[in-house]
Computed example of a mutant assay.
Amino acid sequence: MSPSFHAQEISQAAMLSDLPFTELYIRVDDPTFGSRYKPDVTRTGRATLISANLAVPDKYSDPISEIRMQLLPFIGDKEIGVIMYRDLRLRYTISEAADGEIWAALRPIPLIVPTPDELLIHPSLVEAVMMEARKKGLILIGGKTGQGKTTTAASFLRNFCVQMGGTLFTMEDPVEYMLSGALSEHSWCFQHEIHRESDWEKIDKKAKRFNPDWMFFGEIRSMEAAEQLIAAAGRGQLVVATIHSSSIADTVNSLLQYLKPEMRESARRSLASNVRMVIHQTMTPRGPFIEQVTMTNEVTDPVRSALEEGNLQNLANSLKKYQPARLPEEQQRQQQGQVRR
């Protein structure tokens, strides 16, 4: 093998960004065990692979090995977090399986927050969300794992800052998109990472002193996070939060289920007063399919009634559905596909 050919082979092997994955699975405790990945159908365009779990080709063995070495020190310590590998920012979760094998699941996060247009979010929904930007209350974004909830939330929040100017305060477990600092000439983001459950209350107390225009809770998966979100949503700024869910109704129900049973009724009444919009997102090969309900100020608003009465399934009666936006033909030919969380 010639030196030039060998150098070319190494260069090709190092380009992990060429692998179209939404999740990458690496056996952390055994370097000889092959890795797996879930393909990103927005990049492959192959809808038949939407639930596939495939073997990572051998040409990626070098970057897989380097990532594995980065993850080894986190076993038994910081098992959820974010690492950098060359041109990729990767969110990781390390878990020990029942048979003792230690695996890491990694998800790529773009270094630059994409715009709603780049994400192919329907323009009518973008307009509806922007109309809520200066109001008080809660926009709750739900979806299953890997459907782009955090990407959509970060895109909307950055859009608020760029278009309107103001102060954004985030509380994230872990921080995924780098938003900290100036997002435009007239806006600033104070970004905070949650390291333990007690941080939700501690950092939320500090948020009050920053007097933000917008807050971001990402993502809600504990009682402590849910309690602070309910409190923040009624405090005078717009709060955006993400949560794992299977439908519009389940997006609200999942939030309530994190609370103690004796707190759920009062929390539901609080949501009936403070929810501005509930979104549920599903990724398709063409982009995000989004269902959405918006609460109006009308006393007889059906969304408010469904929340007040606890009939969450009735939220489906007020659904608006948004297909992915269509790109102009010349952009379709150039589209590379957007890696999403």
Rank of each mutant, 00 (worst) to 15 (best):
M1V: 15
S4G: 01
H6L: 15
A14I: 13
D18R: 15
F21T: 07
T32I: 12
R46T: 06
A47N: 08
L54R: 01
A55L: 10
D58P: 01
D58N: 14
S61R: 05
M69D: 02
L71H: 13
D77A: 08
I80Y: 08
M84L: 08
M84W: 11
Y85R: 06
D87L: 15
A98G: 06
W103E: 10
P116C: 12
I121A: 04
L125P: 03
V126E: 11
E127R: 08
E127F: 05
A128S: 08
M131N: 11
G137K: 12
L138K: 00
I141N: 09
T145Y: 04
T151S: 14
T151P: 01
L157M: 13
C161P: 01
Q163W: 01
G165L: 13
M171F: 04
E176F: 06
G181C: 10
A182S: 04
S184W: 06
C189G: 06
I194H: 02
N211I: 15
D213I: 13
M215T: 11
A226M: 02
L229K: 00
A231W: 03
A233C: 05
V239Q: 07
A241Q: 15
I243H: 07
M263P: 04
A272Y: 02
R276A: 03
T284V: 15
T284M: 14
P288K: 09
I290Q: 09
T294L: 01
M295F: 03
N297A: 05
P302C: 06
P302M: 09
S305G: 07
S305T: 05
A306F: 04
E308M: 09
G310D: 08
L312G: 00
N314D: 09
N317M: 08
K321L: 07
P324A: 11
E329C: 02
Q334C: 04
